[in-house]
Write a protein that binds this DNA or RNA. Structure first.
Length: 344
DNA sequence: CATATTTGACCAGG
DNA sequence: CCTGGTCAAATATG
């Protein structure tokens, strides 16, 4: 659904509105991160609290920015303060920019995206042949492109940690590019049938900047506790969050979210008989808690999870009208949130 | 010993 | 046929 200019560079200053949008997107991102860890953090009130603060601050800043934004002033560059600038350098933001600049500049970002379908109608493609024959068209995969500054830390040139663990499964020289592209997939692919993947590649001109492309969403990290988290998405916020984490069948307002929860591995397709769907046959029948057995290849069943974006939203609408300055210099929480716990 | 990365081969789409 | 994406054996790492 997303197409971005293959070699789009974001080099023009963005106006406050766009910045605000970026912030909002980032806030959504944070929210999702929090969501991802809810299970693990259940017993860490402080951490939870802090995460909430980060989210609140982010959104609050965005809001403030919107309030202060003048209808039109694209001319000069941003009069943003350093902290924000720093924030903007963060990959997530860059991603947001990319998306914004790639077309939809309006707030209705999510509107178009809701058209996306899971298209998991893997159908009985069982008898199909060899490997890489993903049931899906591989075209409907939603991609999120973003730029992330290379870690200047002494560390190697590995792109900074997002909150997921990735396993590299390939690398390739790309025509016309100086640097190879690395292919990663979620480490928990097996356990959770997580289809998330990402590609990392350096910019041709900027050795110190990575371009990370996220493909698919994480279905791992489901909290052990009841999949009964009643979602109530129905606000612009939630919509905005979509570009980053476009839910399968979600419609902007009322989606059968409940469906996501029930991790229904409802793939009618019988696994390809003997056809060895291509090495990745996973066969990890009962993953974690007696998960359903899906004899098929990895990426088709969508085990979704409700977005928590609404939480943040709620927090917003409820109280804070205008909060402090933008001191939300959120820490790079690249901690060790490790989702290493398999037993969900 | 288990798990992650490397790397050439394989495959499908354009 | 070329190219990008993936697999999987070999290798590295703990």
């Amino acid at each position: 659904m997303f197409h971005f200019d293959p070699r789009a560079k974001q080099k023009n200053p963005m106006d406050p509105v766009q910045q605000a949008l970026s912030l909002i997107l980032h806030g959504c991102r944070l929210t999702k991160e929090l969501e991802a860890r809810l299970g693990d953090l259940a017993n860490q009130p402080e951490t939870l609290s802090k995460s909430c603060d980060d989210i609140i601050n982010t959104f609050a800043s965005a809001k403030e920015m919107l309030n202060n934004a003048h209808p039109h002033q694209g001319s000069s560059q941003q009069q943003t303060d350093p902290s924000l600038q720093e924030l903007l350098n963060y990959g997530v933001i860059t991603q947001a920019m990319d998306m914004i600049q790639s077309g939809r500049t309006s707030i209705s970002i999510g509107a178009e995206i809701q058209a996306m379908e899971v298209s998991d109608s893997a159908g009985g493609s069982s008898s199909s042949s060899q490997r890489s024959h993903r049931s899906s068209s591989k075209h409907d995969e939603e991609k999120c492109r973003m730029r992330v500054p290379a870690p200047q830390m002494g560390n190697t040139d590995l792109p900074p940690e997002d909150n997921y663990t990735w396993r590299k499964y390939g690398q390739k020289e790309i025509l016309g590019s100086r640097y190879p592209r690395a292919y990663y997939r979620c480490t928990h692919q097996k356990l959770y049938n997580c289809p998330a993947k990402k590609q990392v590649q350096r910019l041709d001109n900027d050795f110190h900047t990575f371009e990370v492309t996220y493909i698919g969403q994480h279905t791992c990290h489901m909290s052990s506790t009841a999949p009964s988290i009643a979602p109530l998405i129905q606000d612009p916020m939630a919509m905005v969050s979509q570009p980053t984490l476009p839910p399968p069948t979600s419609s902007s307002s009322v989606a059968p979210l409940g469906t996501w929860l029930s991790m229904e591995f409802s793939l009618g397709s019988g696994s390809s008989p003997g056809g060895r769907g291509g090495g990745d046959a996973v066969a990890s029948a009962a993953a974690g808690g007696g998960a359903a057995s899906m004899g098929s290849r990895y990426g088709r069943e969508v085990v979704e999870f409700p977005a928590v974006a609404d939480m943040a939203d709620a927090m917003f609408n409820s109280g804070s009208s205008s909060s402090n300055s933008m001191d939300f210099i959120f820490p790079h929480m690249e901690d060790k949130w490790e989702a290493g716990d398999k037993a969900n």
